[in-house]
Design a protein around this nucleic acid. Sequence first.
DNA 1: CCGTATCCCAGTGGATACTG
DNA 2: CAGTATCCACTGGGATACGG
Lengths: 138, 138
Amino acid sequence: METNTKKHENCFMRETCLKDDLCPMVLAYKLLSGKRKIMILWFLSNKVLRFNELLKRMPDVTQKMLTKQLRSLEEDHLITRHIYPTVPPKVEYEITEIGKQIVPILELMHQFGASYIETFRDELNARKAAEENPEICS
Amino acid sequence: METNTKKHENCFMRETCLKDDLCPMVLAYKLLSGKRKIMILWFLSNKVLRFNELLKRMPDVTQKMLTKQLRSLEEDHLITRHIYPTVPPKVEYEITEIGKQIVPILELMHQFGASYIETFRDELNARKAAEENPEICS
DNA sequence: CCGTATCCCAGTGGATACTG
DNA sequence: CAGTATCCACTGGGATACGG
């Protein structure tokens, strides 16, 4: 009987959710897809930050990409953008209420990632070494 | 002191994790990146499935892509592949122990997605209608 | 049944230079 | 400071056909 209280949540989903393309899980995935979005949300989760502050925290991203991802997050209502019309300009980004609901997901991902690294440390190091010295495979 | 039990988990991470590129959160994101991986893990989370059973559950994916994503998941030790050398061939995919640890993330994503849809139902419908009838914008 | 092989396209994201 | 504008390489992923 499915009146069982300990029934696996959303279990029905496993059979049906693909039928309509507004599957909540897939939607959530799409909202987070983009190489930098999770990091942006992560950094904003406990602090309002300016454009340059975000840029400094993400050394390997270009201005263009940061702008693009920020605009996309704003469009999805996950962050807001406050412009102060001063000279020089000042723009602050803040996470929204709905955006904050993503943070627990990020924390779980972090936990999982840490546990995964723990388990496969050696293999991960080997992979990394391999792609840094491809000539070894010659 | 970090002996504080109620301290926000991983809070320190927000400042430092980008410095080395093995940030656990980013790693977790990469393991799940790929249009179908979350769905595959979702379907396998409570059942061992054959290739064709997966294919039937995901009507909009090609064999090639399904194969590719399955191989990638296998390589990352999130699923295993059992081959029965019968005629016709039979291949079963099963989630691993480490793979099972991803399921809570998927469940959170599903919850979030549902809540997001609840909040922005009208806008989501409008967007969908817009991309189905682009001529409206003429 | 469970794949590979080939071709091809659109979108992501990097580098660099310029602007209000 | 906080962006645009251009150009361009790479790859994710779709369509289709073939193979063990």
